[in-house]
């Protein structure tokens, strides 16, 4: 596995990709994408057992990942490209006509690394449970990972899936909720307070882990390794990961206002300066 310093460098490159992608088309969701950069880099460059050069939809013998909150596609695409699923230069096509990098991720254009469409919220956990059940039927002991937004948990299907996964002991799944506390109309507490998510998931029968520092690469890697040790024990595993929306770009940090707004030229320059790399490899 790469060193922490190496992973941090990748995180900076991913942040550069995110702001450049959304700037280029003046649309997309930078805030949540930036906040989850450490999670994605930890997963794809650290913890996950996967084969980027030979993508197969079935993912037999591989760990597989599902992005349920598909609007943070910029971070997903950047990490997929940087880990070798498709050419990095293709990031320049994000949200443009005839691109495989649709506004929200899809299998429809055949982009390697994506296994289901997401964007309409709340569906990814159910799909991941299905993939986890297929792994059990195939005697495949690899892991299924999912990521969700905290606002996304307001969708009812999430709780249908949460109930099922615990009741049927789907214990080869590690879900993570990005607890950035923000959604489109404001903070989650303003829009629809959800109370204790730990208490809720525990009541549903999940093994719940708290990750306080979701924007610290070493903390995220350590937590994902811990979570893996919690699999196979009869309970699905949930990581409640605190992050900061817009992390790494000071004027975007901690505000719902950058949920779905792209930076202008000047803001892009600032964001790139704040994520400076001596040997940047921008697409």
């Amino acid at each position: 596995m790469a060193s922490t310093a190496e992973l941090e460098k990748i995180v900076s490159q991913v942040r550069r990709d995110i702001v450049r992608m959304v700037h280029a088309v003046n649309s997309g969701h930078p805030g949540g994408s930036l906040g989850c950069a450490e999670y994605f880099v930890s997963l794809y460059f650290g913890v996950m057992k996967h084969n980027p050069s030979k993508f197969s939809m079935d993912g037999i013998g591989e760990d597989v990942f599902f992005l349920s909150n598909g609007h943070i596609s910029p971070v997903f695409y950047s990490v997929l490209a940087r880990s070798g699923y498709f050419p990095v230069k293709e990031l320049a096509t994000f949200r443009k006509l005839d691109s495989r990098l649709q506004g929200h991720p899809t299998t429809h254009e055949g982009l390697p690394g994506v296994r289901v469409a997401s964007g309409s919220l709340g569906q990814g956990l159910s799909v991941a449970i299905g993939a986890a059940l297929a792994k059990k039927l195939n005697n495949d002991d690899s892991i299924v990972y999912t990521l969700h937004g905290d606002g996304e948990l307001q969708e009812g299907q999430i709780w249908e899936a949460a109930m099922y996964a615990a009741a049927k002991k789907v214990d080869n799944i590690i879900s993570t909720v990005d607890m950035n506390g923000q959604q489109i109309d404001g903070s989650t507490d303003q829009v629809l307070p959800m109370g204790s998510l730990r208490a809720k998931f525990e009541a549903f029968g999940w093994d719940v882990l708290d990750l306080e520092k979701g924007n610290s690469i070493s903390s995220v890697v350590a937590m994902l390794k811990t979570a893996k040790e919690h699999t196979g024990k009869g309970k699905p595993v949930m990581i409640l990961m605190k992050t900061e929306m817009g992390h790494g770009v000071d004027f975007m940090m901690g505000s719902h206002k950058w949920h779905g707004v792209a930076p202008n030229d000047e803001q892009l320059a600032q964001a790139l300066t704040q994520n400076h790399l001596e040997d940047e490899a921008d697409y």
């Binding site: 296994r115 956990l125 159910s126 991941a128 299905g130 993939a131 297929a134 039927l137 249908e160």
Partner: peptide, 17 residues
């Protein structure tokens, strides 16, 4: 829980079911 059922079915195809 029909919504969950459709999602699980979609997921089961990933792995050849």
């Amino acid at each position: 829980a029909e919504a969950n059922m459709i999602g699980i079915a979609a997921g089961l195809t990933i792995g050849g079911k």
